[in-house]
Design a protein around this nucleic acid. Structure first.
Length: 342
DNA sequence: TACGTAATGTGATTTACGTCA
DNA sequence: AGTGACGTAAATCACATTACG
């Protein structure tokens, strides 16, 4: 008789895991970060076909919910998505003139949204018409019903269409020539950040410290979707007076931070699992020794052909039954009171 | 000085598009 | 003319790393 407990490749159900998982409010999994990320990303987009099969295990992944208003970590769940659109979107819809003060006093550029069906020949088409008459304000026309419908992957428009679409944005107003130009230049070895600052003043890498308000705003956006499609990026950048690339980088770094923390939690949890299983293994080994001792000290039982060892499914105690004598010996596998044993 | 994080560099992947047999 | 294979460009991502405040 061999007891073999291991933490090998084959996932074995851990009875306490489910309960613990519920208690902690997250799931456990050992999938790669990419999978978790992808799943999260896909699930977070309504129009995206959710194809997040648990390939590596049937167990749901350990999902650390680091989002401030996540139901898993907060007693009062957030309003449903339908009531909480993109934070900046709500501001866009609200703001018509002048500055709009956000929660913590963030001044964002008010944007006027006008849907023009005549100029909107396809879903998602956006018309930005920056209003530079007032240097502090802008307006653009956009189909809000479809702007955030798709996410990064599925929203990829044909290049020509996208170029056309993005060309309607006054990128000069956004403080950059065009994102592709910058990418090209960054691939050239100079690095992205050099286009504006470096080229202008010849200084090295300039690190912008985002304001609390900008960070909070980005954080709110991240809560909604942890990835951005090009339109979202542009709108958000416009709202925060940042370059789209900065918004993109912020989201990338934010995802990395989330993943890092997720990994830490995974490690901590696995450590706990390991300790628990080690303890369980130790206890079972001891139990085995006792059974072996019982076998040698009471050979009569072993000679009896009708003796069987069964385990009570309810209390998980091993029951040694000898029908001829109706003698029953129980061995507890769990350190629990035996009162409830049938 | 350590730390948090914005910024950069790189390789992989996906998508759209043009060309050619 | 329609079609599939193939190459290319662009966009975006994760990841590792750098460097600034």
């Amino acid at each position: 008789m061999e007891l073999d407990l291991s933490l090998g490749d084959t996932p074995k159900p851990v009875p306490f895991a489910d309960q613990k998982t519920k208690d902690l409010g997250f799931y456990m999994g050992l999938e790669s970060g990419r999978q978790i990320q992808d799943c999260h990303q896909k699930n977070s987009n309504d129009d995206e076909k959710t194809n997040c099969s648990s390939s590596s295990s049937d167990r749901p992944p350990l999902q650390l919910d680091l989002l401030p208003f996540s139901p898993a970590l907060h007693q009062s769940p957030p309003p449903p998505p339908s009531h909480r659109p993109f934070p900046w979107l709500s501001q866009i819809l609200i703001a018509e003139t002048g500055f709009r003060k956000l929660g913590k006093g963030l001044d964002v550029k008010p944007l006027t949204a006008i849907y023009d069906p005549d100029n909107c020949d396809e879903p998602g088409a956006v018309q930005y018409s920056p209003d530079n008459s007032n240097s502090d304000t802008s307006s653009f026309q956009m189909d809000f019903s479809s702007i955030f419908k798709s996410s990064t992957g599925s929203s990829r428009l044909p290049s020509r269409k996208r170029e056309l679409e993005l060309s309607t944005v006054n990128l000069d107003y956004l403080g950059e020539t065009s994102e592709r130009d910058q990418r090209v230049s960054s691939r050239g070895g100079g690095g992205y950040g050099g286009t504006s600052d470096e080229d202008e003043n010849g200084l090295g890498r300039k690190k912008l410290r985002l304001t609390k308000e900008q960070s909070a705003f980005l954080e709110d956006s991240f809560k909604e979707h942890n990835t951005l499609n090009p339109k979202q990026k542009l709108v958000l950048a416009n709202q925060l007076n940042l370059r789209p690339r900065q918004v993109e980088v912020w989201f990338q770094n934010r995802r990395a931070r989330t993943k890092l923390k997720q990994t830490e939690v995974d490690c901590e949890y696995l450590k706990t699992c390991c300790e628990t299983l080690t303890e369980e293994n130790r206890r079972l080994q001891k139990e085995l020794q006792e059974l072996r001792a019982l076998k040698t000290s009471q050979p009569f039982y072993m000679q009896h052909p009708a003796t069987t060892l069964t385990m009570c499914p309810s209390c998980e105690r091993v029951v040694t039954t000898t029908p001829a004598t109706a003698a029953t010996t129980t061995t507890t596998l769990r350190q629990e009171p035996v009162d409830g044993h049938p």
